[in-house]
Nucleic acid binder design. Structure first.
Length: 515
RNA sequence: GGCCCGUUGGAGAAACGGUUAACUCACCGCCCUCUCAAGGCGGCAUUCACGGGUUCGAACCCCGUACGGGCUACCA
């Protein structure tokens, strides 16, 4: 199978385009085929300089490496439409010679007038039949106009009959019927560049894709495309119209819009630090309905061991579900070994969070140790959904941020007096038990708590609140705050182990001095 | 307006004419727990947009309606 992705250089990669390329690429690779990328840069007005290269770059960060493209070339190039003009010219000439096309000199004003007239009498709008004035120009008239310098476009001379039906067997949607195309559509613009329809005909013939995977917004143009291929006598490609990713906006579904929705740009997810693997996994669940089931059965398999199929694609575009993306990414980050997540987080931080990057780089093993807390095993921690979540959760492990935080606030339970807090901290310091294994450490902590007047078991405290100052949870909280400046931390035992005795003593003393 | 496509719980969806409509995410309870993050257990559609029809039997087939989406450019 040979597939292609044909983006216009009008901005950064769209989430929907990424999804479509992922599907096209996988389909090609699965079948041992070729995936290529062609730049559709025929609309100079909308072009954004440099965005073509950016598109390829973003595709590649997601692991989608085209076999042929406008960057690396290939045997069926050029891969940039602006460089293929001579090819279009040859085909145009052929069409003209075979009476399948003609020049049209109608101005925008004339076209507007035709449309108004059609609206008035409720005829179908467009350039066809009796409205196609230039279609009936003689060769001499046309030649004279061209020589006189009138601007013109080239139109396809549609052989269609309105009452005829045509159909296409879309590999995703099945057989779809349409009325035959009768419009004499523009195939070459005044600027000499082809329109999409014509470029599709020429490029997707000469560049030899076997399957045209594109958004369903193209479905309505299929009658035009079929007619083009048939008229020139070229073999029709196989069409696969992909459902479009939607978004719920004020109760209504609409296409993800690059202007309105940050999540429509792939770069948004990259900036936020969503793991690439997780994002791809989400896209796969959107692409094939049986992917999630497969994933459940093969939790550790490589995502690309799954074979995408046209049969398992849905017909209607699903809503983009950020919650689900997050959940999948969380799972994905939880599964990574500490060294892996550490190096990926560092790579992300280097690009998007210099402060974080600097802190990590200073002592990479320390950062890995932090990330290793409760990692691995059957039930790994799941506290990050993206790389940008990491630092806010663990920055207290770095003295600089701990200092700032503890000076800012010490959220001790107001029930406890300054003396009681100091008692707890000092009792802990006398017997921190850091050399003990986790379970014993906690037993030790309970003992110390009890000796300080706290219940070792929460239930005991609840049954007899008057007999104790508080329970083990209260006791641990005081130490936790003194050492981390916050009420929640990952597993406290490991936090303490990683900080080390000296740091703990320093932090506790520092906290006491602030009371 | 016309032409296409679609419609199963809050979201993604399974089911391919035959018992109580899978599963994942979200949500809500309870349990576990030194905090957090998790984890465990349970709940969440008497019903498949609506109305007719076909059938012994329909979410699945047919017709109509409603709603949503796409197209209707010298944009892709």
């Amino acid at each position: 199978m040979v597939t292609r992705f044909a983006p216009s250089p009008t901005g950064f990669l769209h989430t929907g385009s990424l999804s479509a390329s992922l599907i096209s690429w996988r389909l090609a690779k699965q079948s041992g085929g070729v995936f290529f990328v062609r730049l559709e840069d025929t609309d100079q007005k909308r072009e954004i300089a440099g965005s073509g290269d950016k598109l390829i770059e973003e595709l590649e960060t997601f692991g989608i490496a085209p076999d042929e493209s406008f960057v690396k070339g290939g045997a069926y190039g050029p891969y940039r439409q602006s460089e293929r003009k001579w090819i279009y010219d040859v085909v145009i000439k052929h069409l003209l010679e075979h009476d399948l096309a003609y020049p049209c000199f109608c101005t925008h004003e004339e076209l507007d007038e035709i449309r108004k007239e059609q609206e008035k009498i409720k005829a179908n709008p467009g350039y066809y039949g009796e409205y196609a004035k230039c279609r009936y120009l003689s060769l001499a008239e046309a030649t004279a106009k061209v020589k006189a310098g009138f601007p013109f476009v080239i139109r396809f001379k549609s052989p269609g009959i309105e009452t005829n039906r045509v159909y296409v067997d879309d590999v995703i949607r099945g057989r779809i019927e349409f009325p035959e195309n009768v419009q004499d559509i523009v195939i070459m613009k005044t600027d000499g560049l082809p329109t999409y329809h014509f470029a599709h005909l020429v490029d997707d013939h000469f560049m030899r894709p076997t399957h045209i995977t594109r958004g369903e917004e193209w479905m309505a143009s299929v009658p035009i495309h079929l007619q083009l291929f048939d008229s020139i006598g070229w073999e029709r490609p196989i069409y696969a119209h992909l459902p479009v990713i939607m978004k719920l906006d004020e109760g209504k579904r609409r296409k993800l819009s690059k202007r309105k929705d940050p999540e429509a740009s792939v770069s948004y997810f990259l900036e936020q630090g969503y793991p690439i693997e997780g994002f791809l996994e989400y896209l796969m669940t959107m692409a094939n309905t049986n992917f999630e089931e497969w994933r459940l059965a093969n939790p550790d398999a490589d995502i690309f061991n799954f074979n995408l199929s046209f049969a398992k694609m849905t017909l209607d575009g699903g809503l983009f579900d950020l919650e689900k993306v997050k959940s999948i990414c969380k799972e994905c980050l939880a599964k990574m070994p500490a060294e892996t997540i550490a190096s990926k987080a560092l790579a992300w931080a280097k690009a998007y969070d210099q402060t974080f990057a600097a802190a990590i780089k200073n002592d990479i093993p320390y950062f890995q140790a932090i990330l290793a807390i409760e990692r691995g095993g059957e039930k790994p921690r799941k506290d990050y959904e993206k790389y940008s979540d990491i630092f806010p959760i663990i920055n207290f492990m770095y003295d600089k941020w701990f200092e700032a935080a503890i000076r800012e606030s010490r959220p001790f339970n107001e029930r406890f007096t300054k003396t009681q807090i100091i008692d707890v901290l000092e009792a802990f310091l006398r017997q921190p038990g850091l050399n003990l294994p986790e379970a014993e450490w906690f037993e030790n902590l309970k003992m110390v708590a009890e000796a300080t007047g706290f219940a070792a078991r929460t239930k005991d405290y609840k049954n007899n609140p008057d007999r104790y100052l508080g329970h083990i949870g209260d006791f641990a909280e005081i130490i936790r705050i003194a050492v981390s400046a916050r009420k929640n931390t990952p597993n406290f035992y490991y936090v303490l182990k990683i900080l080390g005795y000296d740091t703990i003593v320093n932090r506790i003393n520092h906290t006491i001095s602030l009371l």
